[in-house]
Write a protein that binds this DNA or RNA. Structure first.
Lengths: 142, 142
DNA sequence: GCTTGAACCTCTAGCGGCTAGAGGATGTAT
DNA sequence: ATACATCCTCTAGCCGCTAGAGGTTCAAGC
């Protein structure tokens, strides 16, 4: 029987976050002591580890919900889990492409800064005028 | 004299977002018609373009506030603007490194999925057990 | 058995950066 | 004069937590 604090340490999840996951139905309601404190078992520890690990890989809580559901039904075909992971991979690749364009632009900005007055600053000039950009870097979504 | 809708179209910023920027003091309060509708001039159009472009490059609204302030004082030395841009570049590079690790892991997961039952699914297995990961990918912050 | 004090509890509000919608007023073209 | 697109304010919601107030419970040491 684990306290929420122990669970917190074992998984690297803040106590509040665990309670939050319970609140949104990602973690099941645990048992309670007579005094009303939460007590967890190993199954719940595993579940939380799964959630945290998925979060580290960038999956949204909604995606994790689906993945947990699949994980709970070992006889179903697994192409769904595969699809979720592929979707995530795609997103990561898109974000990387965007960041690459940003990096190019930022590098150029910083490189051309002559260290004079702000009136002549290349950094500010580029921000003022998008047409000076060599790459496209639209669509905020990171 | 531009309406908020025109400004919205010219800069690709939603009308609500423009009002939000005004509310948080990023955009100045514009003039109004007798009936109370906002009317903008070209200086404000430029300012909003600057903001949007900076956002596309991933600067936070706080950083943009600083950049705008610097831009308003052309005689100050520009190393501050340079520092802000360098900070941003650093962040972008960190995020890219993280995404790279994630991509590696996701690719491996997807690659090893045999298409069988969820019970044998490599994707889910990896999520269950971090020790199967070849790369580190800690610290969510993207 | 009693006292500490760390860890627990609930509840509410806030972060960034918007976005959506209700419900009503204004501006412009015909 | 009328239609109707656009504007207004206001409130609440999104994601994924995080922080804090104000109070209770548990376990260890005496």
């Amino acid at each position: 029987m684990l306290t929420i604090g122990t669970l917190s340490k074992k998984t690297g999840t803040k106590v509040q976050t665990i309670r939050y996951y319970e609140q949104i139905g990602l973690m099941p309601e645990p048992g309670r002591t007579e005094g009303g404190q939460r007590r967890y078992d190993n199954a719940q520890l595993d579940r939380l580890s799964f959630i945290r690990h998925s979060r580290q890989l960038g999956f949204s809580l909604d995606a994790i919900r689906e993945l947990l559901d699949l994980s709970d039904h070992p006889n179903r075909p697994c192409h769904e889990a595969d699809a979720i992971a592929r979707r995530q991979l795609k997103q990561v690749e898109q974000r990387m492409a965007r960041l690459k364009a940003l990096r190019t632009e930022l590098k150029r900005m910083v490189h051309e800064c002559s260290g004079g007055r702000t009136g002549d600053c290349k950094v500010l000039e580029v921000l003022r005028d998008h047409s000076e950009c060599l790459t496209e870097h639209e669509e905020t979504g990171a």
